[in-house]
Every structure is written in structure tokens, then in C-alpha cells.
Design a protein around this nucleic acid. Structure first.
Lengths: 205, 205, 205, 205
DNA sequence: GATGAATGAGCCTTCATTCAT
DNA sequence: GATGAATGAAGGCTCATTCAT
């Protein structure tokens, strides 16, 4: 009944998502987005003030969706560490299923200049927060040691990121293959973590 | 005896390293590199066939140095896992001490198009190999479980990468602060790793 | 009786006068006029067929008012040359009191292309006519020599124009300061004018 | 012997002079200048950083030449007022002989925005100075009353400007026809000038 | 009368790359 | 080895104008 207003804006976003994911920010042409939306270049500029704004809108939309999804999927676990692990799994699987999503969120735009660097910090900060919150709960519940959960969250996120990028570029290993190891290393590592010396140095101490 | 041939080439590489690190690949102009080298644009092109080649030469030189350094520093530990950990430490500290190095190796060029993506795979592959070799030794020595060391190496590398980038952009946390946690989580996680189920799900099983 | 029809048209004209005076023809956007009128772009186009037409309408309205005012103020003098001088004074003072008027009538649009050049001729022609008519009367009354009053009128107008523009851009001299000199030079010059040789050449003759 | 360097720059300037005079600043395309110079667009930009800079360079060159010419031609008269009049004649004739010169110097660019307005002030200031200096000498020599020569110089310039523009647009009157009247009115007017009341008001006093 | 989304033609500017000297 | 003028292929963005509602 209620007519979907802003339909054009969404169509542009949709088209831009494809174009940016395929070509990368620099090689993507506003003209291509326009064509893919069956719109003129001016039409695109009516809805977005610049190519950069358009790119950010695409990325934000994607991030919002991913975060909702992850929050939804990770909230059903009974234990806090279970929810943390579920968040890890959810992020990794979501990215592992959609190359476009992965490319846009993990790879693009690093070298767009300062504007994007700020965006990257924001974006990864949001993702890390997802994980950190669960880790905080786990820490409060005594399920993991009292570590700096922000750092640990970024460790988790970085590991995810690297495995996703590697899969993106080399096709290996398939995310579903890597996931058990990823979970095992990060979860056990977090559980066993401490700020003291480890490994080879133990014998020296 | 042998006069320092290729002096100009090195001067260009040096200048380019600064320019690329400051501006990023796209915003760096060949003209700026030329000016910084007290050379004309044509002079730069005499030594490097293209801007892209120049960029890759810069990155390769940096990577070679980093890898030598890491190999040197990580070979003195008595245990294999100790050497792995030392590699982790060496990579992380080296990047944590030189923003320029970090920016060039970790951040730049992701969105340069396919050419760079291949380079990124190669580059990170080399870094991951450094770690993987040590893990393989550790695995052979029974110091860690028999896991897929390639995946684990990328997990380690991804964690390093993320913490470095975060430090680069937000200034926090200082690498030396983050390092103990990083080591602890990754080393213990690797030691305790297995491909089975973990965490919250344990209770469910 | 008759309700104020055309109220919107006048509001547009009013808004356009401000916008054109502030920004100049090229830098003024139809959108700005619309916004300033609390109208949409389409609304403006309903009342004026094009930006150029709108501009001309603004200028014409202003010119009409100025001419009426000048005619009114210059008709009370007893002598013809007095009326001519009063016209000079009236034009100069009117422009000297309203920067917006001055900017729009004297400065804008010269380089708008051929369309405006025709307008400029028309506009300045009308102003010159104001002066010329008085000069014709003065000439007929024997108050000034029988010169080409069209040329003299343009001389007067050009002098006014330049002093107004200079005041507009540099703020100096204030019109009321310049006026006595302007009047003196032009009126006496016209009275003493002849088509023969003058000045330094007099001694040579 | 000495090869004329900067030949290309001059060719661009020459071509730009024609294009700007024909089309006006806004309607002139950098592409047209390039084509007319048998150069690529980039070639033009190698020599001039922007279209605006190019335009200013054209205008400055023209103004320099005009000023030299006027100074040369007006310096031979024995009396100061004769030299002033000769400057008037020289400016007016020079403009009256070359439409392109006249269009570029007198008409173009008024509505280019603030950048050009400043240029206009500078340009007309230079021309007015030419005249003012002669008037100052005449004033010092007692050949004309002690008036504000800056204002009088702008009156002269304004009159010239208007007659030139009118000729440009309507073709009438031919500069050589208008010149005697122009000289007569301005020179006699300046000689007879005073800051008191004149004309019709004399009878009222 | 009025809206505002959409058009579309166009223009300035950038810059990696080349090549005659 | 090096210069630097010149190329040329884009590409982002603007804005007067239109028209279905």
C-alpha cells in the first residue's frame, strides 16, 4: 500500500554496491553507476553530493546490515563466551558467503586518502565493538581472564579480515574450512590469555 | 672498488617511499617523486617503466628488509614455538616502530586494481610464510598440535595487521602495550587449538 | 478592488535582484532565486521562461524606476542646462546610494554573450537619452553650443558609470564627494565645447 | 641568433586573445585555445595553471602594450595639458582601431566574479594613472585649476570607455568622429572646472 | 500554480606517459 | 643519463531546463 519512496536512492545504492565491488573505488565511474541504475549522471548527483559520499553510503548500509545480522545471530547462545564465538562465526560466515560484501568492507578504499582512513577506523571500530561487548560479558562472568577486551577484539577482527581477504584473492581456504581453526585459536587463546610471558621464553624464565 | 652504481635508482626509491607513504598510491604524483629526487619526470621514467613498477619496487625493498630482519631476530630462540613467537614479535615491533613501513606494507594499494591485489597476496604470503615455517617446526617437534599452519599463520598475521593499522590511524594502543596480549592470545591459542567444537557449545555437547 | 495579482512574480523579481547583485549573472543559480522566493525551481520557471529572461526583467524594472525618478527630479529646474545637470545629478546619486542597483545596471552581464550586449546598448541608450533630451533643449535654447548631443550624453554617462564602478569596487571616492567635480567638468566642458582644436595645440595653431 | 624561447607561450596568448575576444570569457573554451594553438588541452595547461590565469595574462599583456604606446605617443607634446590630451587621444584611438583590444580591455569579465573585479580595478586604475599623471603636471604648471586629478582622470576614462563600448556594440559613432567632441568637452571642462555650483543653479544662488 | 526528480550536454582540470633534444 | 614540453584520455561535477504529477 504505502508506496516505497526513495526507491531511486536505493536503486543507486544497489548499483553502486556492484560497481564499487567490481572495480574498486578509483576505477569505478559514476557514469557506470548511473547506467546501471538507468539514470543519467546528473540523476545520481541529485541523490548523492559526490562519488565519495555515495561510496560511504554504500559501505554504511552494508555495515549496518552485517551488524544487525551478527547481533541477531549471536544473541541466542547461553554463555557469554558462546555469544562472542557466535559473533566471530557470524561475521566470518557472512563475509565468507558474499564476496561483494567482503570486498567492500574489508578491502576497498584504504588508499582513498584521509577521508576513507577515518571511515575505516569507524567501520572496523564498529565491528570490533560487536565482539568486544561479548568479551566484556564473558569477562564479567569469569568465563575468560580479565584482559583488555578492545585489543582482543581487534585481534579477532584482524584474523577474520586476513582470512577473508586471502580467500577473496586466492580462493583458499574456503571460509567454512578455516572457521573451526579460527574459532579454536581465538577462543582458546582468549581463554588462556594472560599478559605474562609465554612459549619459548617460559623455559628461559 | 666498485663505485656505487645505481645511486640514482636508490635515491628515487628512497624519495618514492616517503611520497607513497605520505600520500598513498593514487594521490602520489610521479612529479613529486621526481622533485623529491631532484630529478625530472623523465629521469624517473628512465629508471622505472611505470608508476606501478616504482611502487612495487619500493614495497619489495621494504619487505625484503623486514623479512631479513625477522629471520635474523627469530632464529636465536631454542624452541620452535619460541622462534615462531619471536617472528611474531619481530614483525609487530618493526611495523610498530616505523609508521612509513607500516603504511606502505599494510595499508596502501589495496584498491589499486587487480595488479596490486596480486602483489598483496604475494606480500602477505611471504610474511605468513615466515611464521608458518616456524609453526611447522613447532608442529614437527610436537610443541603445538598438528593444525593447518598456513591458516594459523594468517590468523597471526591478520591480528598483527589489524593492530598495526589501528595504531596507525588512531594512535592506540601503542604496539609495545598490545604485544603481550597479542603473543599470549595467539601462542596459547595455537597451543590449545584443535579443530573440534569449543566454548559455549561445549556445554551443549 | 483588484487583488494583488502577480504577487509571486514580484517576489521572484525581488529575490532575483538580490541574488544577481550578489553573485553576478553567471554565479547566480536559479535554485538560489527559487530558495530565496520560497519556491521550487519549477515555480520560477512557471513565471519566467529562462534565467536570461528573468535577469532582463530584473534589470528592466530597475531601469524603469531609475528613469522615472530621474525624470521627476530633473524637471523642476528653470533652465534647460539646469535640467540636464539635474539629470546627471539624479542618476549619479541614485546609483551612488544603492550598490545593488549600481551593480546590476552598470556592471553585470557584459560578458553574457550577444544577448546581453544588445541589452546593454538598449539600457545605456535609455539612460543617455534622458540626458540627451535635456541637452537638446539646452542647445535649442542657446544655452550650450550646437554639439552632437548624443555623443555628449554618452560622455556624461560614461563618466558617471566609471565613477560609480570605481566606488563600487574600491569604495572611493564617495559619490557625494565626486559629484561636484563631475558636474563641473561635464557641464562646463559641454558649455565650452566646440569641435575645433584645443589645449596644447592651441599654441601651435 | 638567440632562439626565441617561450614561443609556445606566446602562441597560446595570441590564440587566447582571439578566442576570448570573440566569445567572451565564459563562452570561450580552453579547447578552442588549444586547437587554435595547434596544441592539446594539456599543452595549454602546462603553460597556464588555469583558464582564469590565462585570461589575466592575455589582458595584462594587452594593457602593458597599450600603456607603453600611450606613454610614448603622449610624451612629445610641449605643454602638460597637451600631453594629457594626447594621452586621451592615444587611448581612445588605440581602442578605436582594434575591436579585439577594446572588447578585452573594456568589456570582458566584469561578471567573472570577485577575481576579475579586482583585476578590473587594477586595470582601469593603471589607465587612469596615465591620465592623472599628465593632469598633475598640468595642475602644477597652472594650466588647469587645482582639482582632484584622480577623479578627473576617471571621468576622462569613463567617457572614453563608454564611447568605445557604444562603438563596439552599435558601430556608432566612429571613434575618429567622436574624438574631437570628447577632447573638447573633457579638456575644456577640466580647464574650467571648479568645485562650486554651476549651471542652472547659478540663477538660484 | 507549483513541485522536484531527472536530464544531458558540457567543461575544466588532472596526470601517467612519451620523446625529441 | 636526463630534460621538460607536450600528449590524450579520461572523469567528476555543474546547472539550466523539462515534465509527470
Amino acid at each position: 500500500m504505502t508506496a516505497p519512496r526513495e526507491a531511486t536512492r536505493d536503486r543507486i545504492l544497489e548499483a553502486a554496491e556492484h560497481v564499487f565491488a567490481d572495480k574498486g573505488y578509483h576505477d569505478a565511474l559514476v557514469d557506470e553507476v548511473a547506467t546501471a541504475t538507468a539514470l543519467s549522471k546528473g540523476g545520481v548527483y541529485f541523490h548523492f553530493p559526490s562519488k565519495e559520499d555515495l561510496f560511504f553510503a554504500v559501505v554504511d548500509r552494508l555495515a549496518d546490515r552485517l551488524i544487525s545480522k551478527v547481533e541477531r545471530e549471536s544473541s541466542t547462545q547461553p554463555t557469554a563466551i558462546g555469544r562472542a564465538e557466535a559473533a566471530l562465526t557470524a561475521v566470518f560466515s557472512a563475509l565468507g558467503k558474499r564476496r561483494r560484501l567482503a570486498r567492500l568492507l574489508m578491502v576497498q578504499g584504504y588508499s582513498m586518502g584521509n577521508a576513507f582512513e577515518r571511515k575505516r577506523v569507524e567501520l572496523f571500530g564498529r565491528f570490533a565493538s560487536l565482539i568486544r561487548q561479548r568479551l566484556d560479558e564473558a569477562s564479567a562472568a569469569g568465563e575468560i581472564p580479565p584482559v583488555d577486551t578492545t585489543i582482543v577484539a581487534h585481534i579477532w577482527l584482524g584474523a577474520i579480515n586476513e582470512l577473508v581477504i586471502r580467500w577473496l584473492y586466492s580462493g583458499e581456504p574456503a571460509p567454512m574450512e578455516a572457521l573451526p581453526i579460527l574459532r579454536s585459536v581465538l577462543v582458546e587463546g582468549t581463554r588462556a590469555s594472560h599478559a605474562g610471558r609465554v612459549a619459548g621464553e617460559a623455559g628461559n624464565g
